[in-house]
Amino acid sequence: MTNYLNKLIMSRLLAAITLPISIALTILLTILCSVPIIIAGLVKLILPIPAIWRSVSVFCNFMMYCWCEGLAALLHLNPHLKWEIEGLEKLNKKNWYLLICNHHSWADIVVLCVIFRKHIPMNKYFLKQQLAWVPFIGLACWALDMPFMRRYSHSYLIRHPERRGKDVETTRRSCEKFRTHPTTIVNFVEGSRFTEEKRRQTRSPYKNLLPPKAAGIAMALGVLGAQFDKLLDVTLCYPENNDSPFFDMLSGKLTRIVVRVNLLPVAEELHGDYVSDKNFKRRFQQWLNTLWEEKDTLLTSLITPHPQKK
């Protein structure tokens, strides 16, 4: 009993020391990488010349790669962390990808950046509008041409019908920018991080997921469908740190990250007019719901502890 208490005290003491150090190093890394990106973005804004835009984009992507490498190095400092990753074979940095993933924690972005940094083009995330005001990060994401999405409630759209379809137009404009160089477009199609409260509020039919929103990826496929080489269906979870993975990541208590990557073809039936064609919209939503049912089953199997063999 005494040994257990000593280990518990030491564990909490180590976490208390690790947390402020991890936060400080992460902030420092983010500032060091985002400032050059912001400056390069201002150059692109002042000099709207295609050749300059391409050069600036290459530089910004390189700086984001440096940020990903820094995050990988910080995670490597945790001796208890184990990665279980399947499905990285046959990926290529010269291809275009549409990546969809479940969203459980802020840790998800870190995990996706770290595991894919050497396998596919730099990730471009669909971001909430509120992130535009986060110091350094917001401006850096703007310079990297990441689309900021403003979510409106159903009641708000009834009062302001002119706002309907704004996210779709934002998606279209952003995707047009990615035609010139290989890109990975990332969309957390649930639109928000998963919590039990949100699951109840949305009346989600899934045990581990929120209902998926189809419009963003449908529009991305509509604009860049012919250029996407594959669709990456990514499932990730933190079986031993399911309650607070991001906090545990920063405090050095994260022990296991499980990632499954399913490489899917961009089938012809996924191309269509999601806004005007109701039949296509219905088929696309059914396809995504089926994908989400399979993901929910997979997550249940990954999270559920398996009995140890005697």
Rank of each mutant, 00 (worst) to 15 (best):
Y206R: 05
K198A: 12
E293R: 03
P212M: 02
E240D: 14
Y274I: 13
E162W: 03
V223D: 04
V258G: 00
D243S: 12
S251G: 04
V186C: 11
E269D: 14
F280C: 08
R282T: 12
F247N: 02
D233L: 07
R164N: 13
M249N: 01
T255Y: 02
F284G: 03
Q286V: 07
L209D: 03
R256M: 02
T235L: 00
E169F: 02
D296V: 09
L291C: 11
S174K: 08
L224Q: 08
E268Y: 02
G225P: 09
K278P: 01
G225Y: 09
A218D: 08
C237I: 07
G191N: 07
R163L: 14
E269W: 04
L254I: 07
S155E: 15
A215G: 12
E190I: 01
V186K: 01
I158K: 15
N279F: 01
D296C: 06
H181Q: 13
E268F: 02
L224D: 07
W287G: 00
E190Y: 03
D229P: 00
L224K: 07
T170N: 09
V223S: 08
E294W: 02
F228D: 06
R282P: 00
T180P: 00
L288I: 14
E269Y: 09
W292V: 10
L231A: 08
N187D: 13
V259K: 02
P182A: 08
K166A: 12
R199T: 02
K295L: 01
I158P: 00
E197T: 11
M249R: 01
Q285F: 01
Y156I: 02
K253R: 15
T170H: 04
R260H: 12
Y238E: 06
G252Q: 02
S251T: 03
K166E: 15
